[in-house]
Amino acid sequence: MPKTLWFEEKSVQTGWGVALHITKKLHEEQSSFQKIEVYQTTNFGNLLVLDGFIMLTERDNFQYHEMLVHPPLLCHPAAKRILIIGGGDCGSLKEVLKHKQVQTAIQVDIDERVTRVCEDYFPDLVTSNDDQRATLLFADGIDYLAKVPANSFDVIIVDSTDPVGPGMVLYATEFYQSCFQALGDSGLLVVQSESPLLHADLIEKIRANMTTAGFSQLNSYHFPVSTYPSGWWSATMAGKENSSLSIKNRDIKIQNCVVFTPEFYQGCVLSEARLKKLRELKFQPG
């Protein structure tokens, strides 16, 4: 019998792992920043892996991109100027540009090779890259934000890798202060904030850093992502004093969404009490 091939991601720290049945490796390279791999799977389409961590599959990436992007764009009363930090696969950019009121969408990712690889192996994600409202910059997002004038954006989306190594700076108070400065009076910041089950302490730290940076309103909300750690993911949205974290128009429909609806988002918001209970759900290795 032919050998069965699996891509496995395992975490000793959390005691969690996932495996996807693969048929072959389609691409591998070491960019200036990270190792990029693409695999063909039997049931989840093509799989993108960065430095050994699953970033997305063709089958389930909508769960992440829809829930990261649409809540802040619909909570803001007039989200016209959008900045994406990270997001080199361009899935978030695609969702942003579904909104007709968006006038400019700037994506700043440090690694151009991720985008070029996705153009070859994930064509559905890059369909909006040629939209006249889109600008793709390949640069350090932290340096970029430090130089933009105040009140430059209505929404900032941080579509980043996990908070390990160099990625930690995108979760620091100093970075959130730069975001606060760059946002307008009703501006909103949203960041991916890992698994509520496995990383509840990290979510608490993110929220504390956002508050220290000046944001006075916070919403953490959860949603499924089948191939991410625990299968349960979250994002945390931060607003200024005049911001709204609720979607006023519950009847709005976004083109070709699978999981996101305004009602689904509102039902996924994690209260302080629920976050506290999640932090208390800790188990010692047996």
Rank of each mutant, 00 (worst) to 15 (best):
R81H: 12
E112P: 05
T57G: 01
R116I: 03
V49H: 07
L125E: 01
P72Y: 10
T115K: 10
I85P: 05
E112A: 12
V102M: 07
E119V: 00
R113E: 08
I110T: 06
R113D: 07
K80N: 05
E58G: 03
G87F: 11
P77C: 04
G88T: 08
L83C: 14
T104P: 04
L56C: 07
C75S: 09
G88K: 09
K94W: 02
G45K: 15
H70M: 06
R59T: 13
D60M: 08
D109Q: 09
D120V: 02
V49K: 10
I85R: 08
D111Q: 07
R113V: 07
C75D: 03
F62M: 01
L68F: 04
C75T: 05
I82H: 01
L93V: 06
L73D: 03
H65A: 02
P77W: 13
L47W: 02
Q103P: 01
P77Y: 13
I106F: 06
F62D: 06
H70D: 02
E95A: 01
K100E: 12
K100D: 10
G88N: 01
L74T: 06
E112C: 10
R81T: 04
G87E: 13
L50V: 15
Y64C: 04
Y121F: 15
I85T: 09
H76S: 03
K94Y: 01
V117M: 13
R113Q: 14
K98R: 13
I54C: 12
H65N: 13
H65G: 03
E119Y: 00
L125N: 02
K100H: 11
K100V: 13
K100L: 14
L50I: 11
H99P: 05
V96K: 08
R116Y: 10
R59Y: 12
E95Y: 10
L74A: 05
H65R: 13
V114T: 06
D120K: 12
T57L: 04
L74V: 12
F53I: 15
P72N: 06
L74N: 12
L97A: 12
H65D: 10
R116A: 06
D111W: 07
L83W: 13
L50H: 04
L83H: 06
A78E: 13
K98H: 08
S92Y: 14
D89N: 07
P123C: 05
V114A: 02
I106N: 02
A78R: 15
L68S: 03
K100S: 07
E95L: 03
Q101A: 12
I85K: 09
I84A: 08
L47S: 03
P123M: 11
V96P: 09
S92D: 09
L125F: 13
C118E: 00
D124G: 00
L47C: 11
T104Q: 00
T115R: 01
E66F: 04
I82L: 05
D51S: 15
G52K: 15
C75W: 01
G91F: 12
L73C: 05
L56S: 03
G52M: 14
D89M: 07
H76V: 11
L83G: 00
N46V: 00
E66P: 03
D51V: 11
E95V: 09
K100Q: 10
D109Y: 05
V117C: 03
V114D: 02
Q63I: 01
Q63V: 00
Q107K: 14
M55V: 14
A79V: 05
H65Y: 12
D111E: 12
T115A: 09
Q101Y: 00
D120A: 15
V69G: 08
D109F: 04
L56F: 11
H70I: 08
